[in-house]
Amino acid sequence: MNAMVKAEGVHKSYGAVQVLKGIDLEVAPREVFCLIGPSGSGKSTFLRCINHLEKVNAGRLYVDGELVGYRQKGDRLYELKDSEVARNRRDIGMVFQRFNLFPHMTALANVMEAPIQVKGETKAVARERAMKLLDRVGLADKAGNYPSQLSGGQQQRVAIARALAMEPKLMLFDEPTSALDPELVGDVLDVMRGLAEDGMTMIVVTHEMGFAREVGDSVVFMDQGVVVESGNPRDVLTNPQHDRTKAFLSKVL
């Protein structure tokens, strides 16, 4: 089966600072793929490279068989136009640590915005799907609320619904529960668990080891820009082979 995401020697640096030093990995369709590691290890940066919010300096990244950000003709690479990058991003949903809901729109309008503006859907169609999605994340009764009137957990669930409204084939989660009060984390994780059960391909940068162990199909431990260890979550999390993994897990578990 073709990989949904494939990374070959991905490098990324900001000036002299090397953030990613050659990442190789593959994410299969319908897989829940968890990225763990200390802050500054490059996991969020890698996630942002997948939908080209960050440009890769070296190596290749493929989503669903297509090169991210470039077109290859022969042995030459051509940068994609902004409009082409935007088109590719339609199929990749992203959920941010800080939610990034549009504060000037209601929850419902947040979810309807992209299908109307990007796909040209009619309001009626977009509204119907948006209401279904809000219902799915348990917030149908908050459709008319502005983000500032919602709790962090509710905002994050609206953000998930907003990403799902584009009917993506891949969902990226960038520490979706790190900015939440502990008692609100569960609701968001429940929604993500439901998504995983429905067969959504998910890449999740997380500090929730419980989630990684229960829901994850594979887990990758990153440190200082490289993949240190990867494999089945039960193996990696309960029986780590590398000292760095052991040291990290002993701190967070």
Binding site: L53, D82, A86, R89, R90, G93, F96, A114
Partner: peptide
Amino acid sequence: GQTEAAHALGMSQGRTLRR
């Protein structure tokens, strides 16, 4: 983050600015 969220949804530069 607002621009990033809009871009991640596939919105173009101009639309992101306007909407």
